[in-house]
């Protein structure tokens, strides 16, 4: 038996037209696509009248051919929303929902877009400008129900700023090699242009060896050096690495490991255009890297909970353990 589909009223904010809010550059129209860049700040705000109660939204973000999904968090009236992000062609769709409790008693809803990746691009005829992502439109509709709202929005913002300022780790561009060794699967990720804190890194090599989905060995260090961290995921899922760097270094390594799924996704976007992928293999390593990232974040949480020094500026540059 088919159920009757539901009609939902939709409110559209076309970014080519005036917006209520702040943190947006002037509208641009190129061919059949129009947008506003977010910026110059990380936080961009849109205010609009939306239907009361539970709802859901879809932000359409314009992408270049090999541009990764932008790291955007969305808040509704100060509460963070869970986002399902996916790329479809040259557009990223960021979808989120909320229940009735997420809304403030205010005439207009306030959407915040927090972008962690800012860059400087030439502005037409006016020097450089700092930009984040290109929002084409935001569409909001009522929903029968929605997920409960997130909380502690300020803590989330503070935490993200802390991570960006004190514990920044960028994996850079990944080149991948997949191999097998008996029944084990091996993945070599060569990371070019990685950064740990403020320090650019030489080419790094992460070697992962998985006998099954529950067991993984990890070796990480400069590709051309003898100094490496060795370890992996313990059967209970915890991350074990040795020799352990100082707390700040350990936190940076955890941040790097947590960013590996992003490097993997970027590699997928670039490498698989037009290729016929081995979906099973790629999915295996996607899950494995996600597990590793989760364990790395858990290790980082422990570090942050225990070490006050992580909240201060690092006293020295990151150094790999002597080989």
């Amino acid at each position: 038996m088919t159920t009757a589909p539901a009609w939902r009223r939709r409110v559209v904010q076309d970014m080519l037209f005036p917006v209520a809010g702040s943190g947006w550059h002037a509208p641009e129209l190129h061919g059949v696509q129009g947008w506003r860049w977010s910026g110059p700040g990380r936080l961009s705000i849109l205010r609009l009248s939306i239907p009361p109660g539970p709802g859901r939204a879809e932000a359409q973000i314009v992408l270049d051919a090999h541009e990764a999904l932008p790291p955007v968090a969305i808040f509704l009236d100060g509460r963070p929303l869970d986002i399902a992000a996916r790329r479809v062609g040259d557009v990223a769709l960021l979808r989120c929902g909320w229940d009735g409790g997420a809304r403030r008693a205010a005439p207009q809803a306030e959407f915040w877009f927090l972008c962690d990746r800012m860059r400087d691009l030439p502005a037409p005829g006016r020097g450089m400008r700092r930009v984040g992502f290109r929002l084409s439109c935001l569409s909001v509709e009522a929903a029968a129900d929605g997920p409960p709202p997130g909380e502690h929005g300020l803590a989330l913002i503070a935490g993200r700023r802390l991570l960006a300022a004190r514990l920044a780790a960028e994996p850079g561009q990944a080149r991948l090699a997949f191999r097998t060794e008996g029944a084990a699967r091996l993945l070599e990720m060569r990371l070019e242009g990685a950064r740990l804190g403020a320090d650019p890194q030489p080419a790094l090599l992460a070697r992962l060896r998985a006998g099954s989905e529950d067991e993984m060995r990890l070796s990480l260090g400069p590709a051309d050096g003898a100094s490496r961290l060795e370890g992996g995921l313990a059967p209970a899922g915890g991350l074990v690495l040795s020799p352990l760097p100082d707390p700040h270094g350990a936190a940076l390594v955890a941040r790097l490991l947590a960013a590996l799924p992003r490097a993997y996704a970027n590699w997928l976007d670039a490498a698989l255009a037009g290729a016929a992928p081995d979906a099973d293999l790629l999915a295996f390593w996607k899950r494995a890297l996600d597990r590793l990232a989760l364990a790395a974040e858990a290790a980082l949480a422990v570090h942050l909970a225990e070490n006050d020094e992580l909240f201060a500026a690092p006293s020295r540059a990151f150094a790999w353990p002597a080989g």
Binding site: P5, A6, W7, R8, R9, R10, V11, V12, D14, S139, E141
Partner: peptide, 8 residues
């Protein structure tokens, strides 16, 4: 789009 709708 002042009168916009979605249909599941």
């Amino acid at each position: 789009e002042r009168d916009a709708w979605s249909l599941d």
